[in-house]
Design a protein around this nucleic acid. Structure first.
Lengths: 282, 282
DNA sequence: GCAAATTTGTTCGTATGTATT
DNA sequence: CAATACATACGAACAAATTTG
């Protein structure tokens, strides 16, 4: 018994899915039927299904069954700046332009505006003291009706006291906050730094993005710190993207227009392009 | 019974870990002891532990026990080009410089060189025909003795027939392949495009990186296509990074020196900075 | 609207296999 | 070889979600 049975079952089901015998949206046999077909106990069948869930191949719905996931058309966010305008990728109108260029539609919620005290991560990123007040502007973003990302921008309260009072209004700043801060306070964004992590989703994210409750599908978390001409940090933007429906892109130097490239890999070609680790990996 | 018991147990253990009662490296009580402590069955205790594994908080070692993960000092790869040299981040000597700048040491394997036929993803990325021959140069990279990344560069075979024969040698090209191709064939890299996905690791990756066998810890997969002056695609580099020990960084415009920023979040501050989705997420 | 049937979710108990010390 | 600890597998029962009649 080299391979455990639950993995053999999972492999067989995966093969059927990848061969198209079980197309996206199809319902798998019930656990009882799979028990009989593979001559295994229900727990073993369920272990196999859990493996497929963790690989994002199927999803279960209590009372209904287990279904092959509908392949989500991933959205590609270009993080480097728009070469035309120099404005940062993934934000405001640059984001909207990128969505509509792909023939898709986006809905962005009105901002939820809060005054908060800076936590350790925020204080460090903005070079302020922990506990200092910051303005938080939080957006939910949908593409073609599906939740795709959550974005929160944090500004030091000092910007408001210096006159950027519209940061406190719970409505969109149509010209974009970068332009607004430039017009109002003369703060020009000359650069930004993104830091990208991957982590399991927290409870609110699971609920908003409708992710599996056990945290199998991770999220990208991108911290973007914006710098003005004097090297001062005036904004921290945190964007959260579920990895199952988002890709990131970076353009450096002279590259062809964006439309030229689709994102590689639908259901993860898994090393097909290059082969992976040889056997001497231990 | 709002919360299932296995999640309550997981939450309690997580609290102990985050409070430092169970410091990194500590062994958790055995499953039998946890059964008694929480008055639950062994299966339920194991379900709780599985949840902690998927959050990368603990790891199990058969025959030994369950341990709080040693917090890995994440390595930060800057994907945008080095402003000094213009060379791409994460490759060759730029990678080495970034590792040593952090006071760490890296070991890079000799390349494993193969002639392959292009799969669909490779052919699409390099704009060649599926089945065309490509040269694959594959490296394993370690930092401070721990496996951190796998990198495979693919070159159209036409480069070799045009004279870049050292691509076939199974030894490092010390000046870097970008410089070598410029010297030999006059192919200058003027830009590149990165596409970033996250997917579960495949078997060789699990073994090389020593990841949990059930694929709970995902990997970054970065496709980098390099362009020459004529807009031609002459190289595809695929780099795989486990997300539990790697961060990515992007610098755009005028930003402070790289050393200034640590990566945020050790064990995932989980929305602490901004709050996440409000309740209207459904 | 309600009740029954179906299907997955959670929990228990037990036995045996495999890896490590 | 023996003891310990996790890994896999079986069987059973009840709960919760959903659909159907």
């Amino acid at each position: 018994m080299a391979e455990p049975m639950y993995r053999q079952i999972a492999d067989d089901l995966r093969r059927q899915i990848e061969a198209g015998e079980l197309p996206p949206g199809a319902r798998l046999p019930t656990e009882i039927e799979l028990m009989e077909r593979y001559n295994a106990s229900r727990n073993t069948v369920r272990d196999a299904i859990k493996l497929l869930i963790s690989r994002a191949l199927v999803e279960t719905r209590a009372g209904q069954g287990t279904f092959v996931v509908e392949t989500i058309n991933p959205f590609v966010t270009t993080l480097t700046s728009d070469p035309e305008t120099g404005r940062g990728g993934g934000e405001g109108d640059v984001y909207i332009a990128e969505v509509t260029a792909g023939g898709r539609t986006t809905v962005i919620s009105d901002p939820r505006v809060e005054i908060q005290r800076a936590g350790a991560a925020t204080a460090d990123a903005l070079r302020i003291e922990e506990g200092d007040q910051v303005v938080s502007r939080h957006y939910q973003r949908f593409i073609d009706g599906t939740p795709f990302s959550l974005q929160t921008s944090l500004y030091p309260m000092s910007l408001v006291s210096r006159g950027a009072t519209r940061l406190l209004e719970a409505q969109d700043i149509v010209e974009g906050t970068v332009v607004y801060l430039a017009d109002t306070l003369g703060i020009k964004q000359v650069g930004y730094r993104d830091s990208i992590q991957v982590r399991p989703p927290d409870e609110p994210e699971i609920s908003f993005f409708r992710l599996p409750a056990d945290g199998q599908v991770a999220v990208f978390e991108i911290y973007r710190v914006s710098f003005d001409e004097t090297g001062k940090r005036f904004r921290l933007t945190i964007t959260v993207y579920p990895v199952d429906r988002n890709r990131l892109r970076i353009d450096v130097g002279a590259v062809p227009p964006r439309a030229d490239d689709a994102a590689p890999g639908g259901p993860a070609p898994a090393g097909s392009a290059g082969g992976s680790a040889p056997g001497r990996g231990s």
